[in-house]
Amino acid sequence: MRRGPSLFNLASLGLGLTFLYAPIVLLVVYSFNDSRLVTVWGGFSLRWYGELMHNEQLLASVWMTVRIAALSATVATLLGTLAAVALTRGGRFPGRTIFSGAVYAPLVTPEVILGLSLLLLFVAVGAPRGFWTVSAAHTTLTLCYVTVVVQARLASFDRSLEEAAQDLGCPPWRAFLLVTLPNIAPAVAAAWMLAFTLSLDDLVIASFTSGPGATTLPMRIYSAVRLGVTPEINAISTLLIGLVATGVIAAYLIQTRGVRRASR
């Protein structure tokens, strides 16, 4: 028999959720505000969403952000999956501990430090800062998340399937492509989603590593807010939240579906 949640549990759940989501709900609600004043409710309207469509600068930074996110997520997924394969399938190769430490380090490095060191690197090699440097920096940031997700799936993946493929005539790389990859595909897709959303909402590293002409959406919002919050910012933020939430939920769904199928 299961008892329902106690009053205390309900209260703490409510408090927690309020704490987490009240600001966001407020932002979303005010994005539909007809009034130009952010703090005064002037009736429901989609006016600011309409204005967004004419704000060339904002649209340009949205496009820039999406391109960076897609590119960095793709590269990070490729590299991160390879790193996961090396860590789970490589056996005890020399330097394995250092390698796994190195892969996970960005996970715990403060973003400011990561951004600063990347900036120093780009300056040192004389790379012109812009789209490519931000993409590279985001690849560095998200690669370790990809590795964590894919490695977890690989660890629970039955090795004898790969052996069976090799036994039937596949060289190891083809066994990976034909047998392992299709089976871990949900985890890889989830990892890509995660990398994409991480890149999408990153401000700190992007600020360090971008240059003129490569302003990402979070950077644009941040600088706009310094001049005062406009309802337009609320609207674009709402869209961003929607996109990130969709990405995270999709990643979650893809992965749980994969796990359920694998454990059947």
Binding site: D158, S160, L161, E163, A164, A165, Q166, D167, L168, G169, C170, P171, P172, A175, V179, P182, N183, R261, A262
Partner: peptide, 20 residues
């Protein structure tokens, strides 16, 4: 010779069928 070049096949105890 690596496994994929041996004309010898193993039927695994766990069957190891490809689930996909």
């Amino acid at each position: 010779d690596p496994p994929h070049r041996r004309p010898v096949h193993l039927m695994f105890q766990s069957y190891a069928l490809f689930p996909h």
